Structure formats: C-alpha cells, structure tokens
Simulated scan of single mutants.
Amino acid sequence: MGTPKNIPYGRQSIDEQDLKAVTDALTSGWLTTGPKVAEFEQAVARMSGAAHGVAVNSGTAALHCAMYAFDLQKGDEVIVPPMTFAASANCVAYMGATPVFADVDPETLLIDPAEVEKKITPETKGIIAVDYAGQPCDYAALRRIADKHGLFLAADGCHSIGGSLNGEKVGSLADITLYSFHPVKHMTTGEGGMAVTDNSEYDRRMRIFRNHGITADFRQRDGWFYEMQDLGFNYRITDFQCALGLSQLSRLPEWVARRREIAAMYDKEFAVLDGLSPLGKLKAAKHAYHLYVINLEGENRSDKRKAVFDYLREHGLGVQVHYIPVHLHPYYKETFGTHEGLCPVAENAYDGLISLPMFPLMKNEDVMRVVETVKAALTEVSVR
C-alpha cells in the first residue's frame, strides 16, 4: 500500500498477514467472544508488563470499565486533565461522579502534578492521567500524590502503547492502564480497547461489567442458568477483531520505532524554524508518538492557527487539532459549571495547536513534504 496523495494525520497499516488472521478467525466457528479474545488479552498484558488484560469494544469502554472497577460512586470526584479527548472525563460522569480538571504543564501538555495536588478535596477518589500525544506522564510524582491521599491512579494510555518511563513499560505505571485500538492509533482491531492491571479484583470487576454484569462464576452445569450480579454493559469484543489485534501486535515495536524516526525528522527540521515549537519531552520518557503536535507562536495565535490549518488542508495535509479542552465543551459548562479561565495553560495552548501527519506508512519524502508545506504556510499566510 502506498501513501495516498493527500496525507492524513493518521492511518492504519493492514497487510496480508492481517487479512489471513481475520479470515482464519471468521472460518474457525467463533465470531463473538472466543479463544482469540483471551489470547489477545494475555499477549497485550504480557507486552505491557501487567498480569491481566480485559479486552472491550472501544477505548471509551475500557475507561468506563476501569471506573467501575474502582467502585466510583455519585458524589466522588476524579481529577482529569483538560487536554484530552472527552472520553477521558466522560467515563467519570458515566458513573455519576464529578470530573475535576487540573491544568497541564505548558511544555508537555501533560497533567501537572502540582495542579493535581491543588484540586484534591475530601471527595477526591482518584486521578486519571492522560499520556497526551504518546508521552507517558510523570507517574512517579502522581503516584506519590495518589498514595499520600489514598487515591486510585489510572493511566489513559490510548496514545502511548509501546512507550515507557524510566525503563518501565506503559501498562505497568498505574493501577489500571487503558488502551484504544481505533484505526488511527498505533495498532488496530477496527474498533476496540483494553484495560491492563496487576490487580486481580479490578480484573474480575471489569470482566463482569463488560458482560451485562453477569459473572461466569454463577453459571450452573445445567447449561442455561446465569445470574446478573450488577448493572453492566455489553462491551464485548469479537474474536475476529482480536485475531486482527494479535497480528497487529506482532509489528507494534517496528511501528513505534518508525514513528520515532519520523518525529526525529520533524524535530530536526523544526528546531531551526521560527514561528512554531514542538512539544517538550520528559528526559525519562520514551515517547510512542501517536501524534506529532506543533504549537504556533506569536500574536493572534488563534487566527494564525486557523489560517495555517486551512493552508495545510488546502495543500493536501490532513492535519488536525488535539484537543479543544474538555472543560470548554457545552455539556461540561452546563452540567459541571466549568468555564473559560479554569485551566489557563491548556486554553492558551489550544489556540496554537496543530497535529501533523504521523503514521508508519509515511515515507521520508512524505515527511519532508509535510515540513516544506509547513514552512510555506508560515511564510505565505498573513494574519491581520
């Protein structure tokens, strides 16, 4: 498969190995939950340095399962960053609890541990850290805060599978880590997600929750009897999706390596370019680069970003913006009373953010085309 004329910001990689894996699963006699699900769970958990994996039908479902595992209740508060996709906070609201937004570090746009500490109240139950763009958060600092206050620590690793911090793998840095297998992510099952953990009780609760609240522990040998223990959801994933996931997982290391090569090319070219800056990096982190994000500099950044964004789109680059800060969405303003000024660092950063194409199928000439188009945009676009 060649790179298309228009370069998207992300794109899945599918080859004959993947097609065969899916075809074999489709003809095996299993379509829904079957042996490939457990095999995929074990493989991802092993790769993550975790004891257990629970596969579900989306990253959002994985987040929801984790909040159930933590026994989140109405009236509880969970601290989340604003610079993320809405699902990272929505999963708290699903449980009737309250997301509390803690601002981000201005260099990395990762949740700022100092801001987390400021937001803790007697109602705080936990912290959800988001590995924005693919870089692991400062989990050592977050763990100290969580342990000090008796909080759970969840890692939204939907951007960071294959990354690490201080030599420790993403998946082993928090109480539960959540992955997404959407097509623009590092590997795909079409739609899908997973939660990984070392905690056997969290694992048990998530398995019940993804299957309507039904546990196999109560099935009788009659073959028909079952009991619903709690109100759960149908978050199951199919066997053929997990077959695709297993095939994709075998190539994850090379794909992450290629993303790092592309990022290094961008870094080199943009280091000497006025008018923008890449995001900062933690020295201890090995970035997985789901996204490569630039931040435009100077005055009238919001207008400049719109003009540059439009120019890049018009010249064949499928750029994106990640993200509108969650607390600025109408639902959060109306439901939780959030407002402009609540997280000034995230709000200021948002005005200048653009995500550039980043996926393993990009050739070096594609990367340089992106670089040259960005340079042209900064030269040719004028903002009053």
Rank of each mutant, 00 (worst) to 15 (best):
K5V: 14
N6E: 14
Q12I: 12
D18V: 14
T27A: 10
S28G: 00
G29L: 03
T32V: 08
T33W: 09
V37T: 11
V37R: 11
V44R: 06
A45E: 06
A45K: 10
A51L: 09
G59T: 08
A61G: 12
A66R: 09
E77Q: 15
V78F: 02
V80N: 00
P81G: 06
A87I: 04
N90M: 14
N90Q: 13
P99F: 02
T108Q: 04
L110I: 00
I111E: 01
P113G: 08
A114C: 02
Q135P: 02
A141V: 07
R143Q: 15
I145W: 07
A146M: 11
D147A: 13
K148R: 15
D156N: 13
G157C: 15
K169C: 10
K169G: 08
L173C: 08
T177Q: 05
L178D: 01
Y179E: 03
K185N: 14
H186C: 07
T188F: 01
G192E: 09
M194W: 03
M194A: 15
T197C: 06
S200H: 09
Y202C: 05
D203R: 14
R204D: 02
R205E: 10
R221S: 12
I237R: 04
Q241C: 15
L249F: 06
W255L: 13
A257H: 09
R259N: 14
R260N: 10
M265F: 05
V272C: 03
G275K: 04
L276Y: 06
P278D: 10
G280H: 04
A285C: 08
K286N: 07
E297A: 13
E299R: 10
S302C: 07
D303T: 13
R305V: 03
R305L: 03
K306W: 08
H315A: 09
G318W: 00
Y323F: 02
H329G: 07
P330D: 14
T335P: 05
P344K: 13
P357Y: 01
F359I: 07
L361A: 14
L361D: 15
N364I: 12
V370K: 01
T373P: 09
V381R: 02
R384T: 11
